[in-house]
Design a protein around this nucleic acid. Structure first.
Lengths: 220, 220
DNA sequence: ACCTGAACACCGTTCAAGT
DNA sequence: ACCTGAACACCGTTCAAGT
């Protein structure tokens, strides 16, 4: 309404991405709307569509920039440890930015990422090959670990924030001990156990299983 | 507008759930809206809120009914095979109804499911205990396999439908062979390999790893 | 007393009209 | 020629007004 000249107050994608990043960090990613982002930049919502195809493209742009900035840790010589380290780095980065995983499930995500974000994939695939996998099996190893990682992040992201214990009393208390004996035994212990971070241990177990299978050769 | 009497044309939740199911099967779960569902039932949107707290509750209701109807397969005596079978049954049911997994990531899903849907969890936990895990570790085993399953379903559900091969030419063709040698080697093979169903083999590897770890006792 | 049309407060996206 | 306000076609949810 009160904008003076006709020259663009929005410079480019860089400014848009920076503002989007700021909004997410401040108010959570659910609050990132095209209109809100435009308002934060002091422009009309239509303006953003001059620089980005649609909202999904914006999120993908935001994500690949973020993933590309993951600090690359020093890699040990043991292939198994290299795989664990690379996937853990990816996991920790995404877990810190839970909305990212939601975007990563879309499309063939690998093709959308730029080269700086692909070192994780390269490290895992190379590690699997060094551990005795064929290239085909190495891709399957990466994808399996990726499914596990995405699932953990999404389930965790959607879990109720563990600020206060959310009424664990009636959790598995009502189950029939005759039909579900183990769960009845666990009872109110479940919610406590379900909050524990078992990702690292599970990851190692998975890598062991995948590479062990490769050595034995029982992969179908 | 043209409804005659004041008596409810909507009987109960059962009718709502049935109509929702029909709408999803016909047009996909993205098309299930409160307004559309109400229209399909010939009532106003406000009416549904007499029977269901909100849309999420509706989806959860729909889901637990569906999961409860999973055919319970005959279980083999080997605990490892019991685990594989139970999780596979859960996976296949959810993969056939991909929107379900999206709902399952919300909240503490286990507490929301009714007893008939919990046999899968019971079977996995019991199998892990029979294989030598402590109850605490058995819960971790279930959760790990659950993450893997949810991740696979979500990534698959969001992948482009494999109706026609979607331009695999420029997929990993541009990567620098010096920095990402293994990926460059794979090149255009990646999209082909990424479409393969590696869930069953990965699941067995994961179970092997988790139970092997339990036996050896290296779980941290 | 019970039900619900119409309204509320939002979305992402488009396009004709403005500068 | 370039930018964008206002409109379009939707959402889930609420509540005052109707029967």
């Amino acid at each position: 309404v009160t904008v003076r000249t006709g020259r663009p107050p929005v410079t480019s994608r860089a400014e848009i991405l920076e503002a989007a990043c700021r909004l997410i960090d401040r108010a959570g990613w659910e609050k990132l709307t095209v209109r809100g982002l435009a308002a934060a930049l002091g422009v009309g919502p239509a303006t953003l569509y001059r620089h980005v195809r649609d909202k999904e493209a914006l999120l993908l742009l935001l994500l690949s920039e973020y993933v590309g900035q993951i600090a690359r840790p020093e890699l040990p010589s043991d292939p198994r440890e290299r795989i664990v380290l690379a996937i853990t780095a990816l996991h920790d980065a995404l877990a810190a930015w839970p909305w990212a995983a939601e975007v990563l499930t879309t499309d063939g995500f690998v093709g959308q990422l730029d080269e700086s974000a692909l070192w994780t994939v390269e490290t895992v695939v190379a590690g699997a090959i060094d551990a005795g996998c064929t290239p085909e099996r190495a891709v399957a190893v990466f994808r399996s670990l990726w499914f596990y990682t995405v699932g953990e992040i999404l389930v965790r992201a959607h879990s109720p924030r563990a600020v206060s214990r959310p009424a664990p009393d009636d959790f598995l208390a009502g189950v029939d001990p005759a039909r579900l004996p183990r769960l009845a035994e666990l009872g109110e212990q479940w919610p406590v156990l379900a909050e524990e971070d078992t990702y690292p241990a599970g990851l190692r177990a998975f890598v062991d299983g995948l590479l062990g299978q490769a050595r034995i050769g029982s992969w179908t």
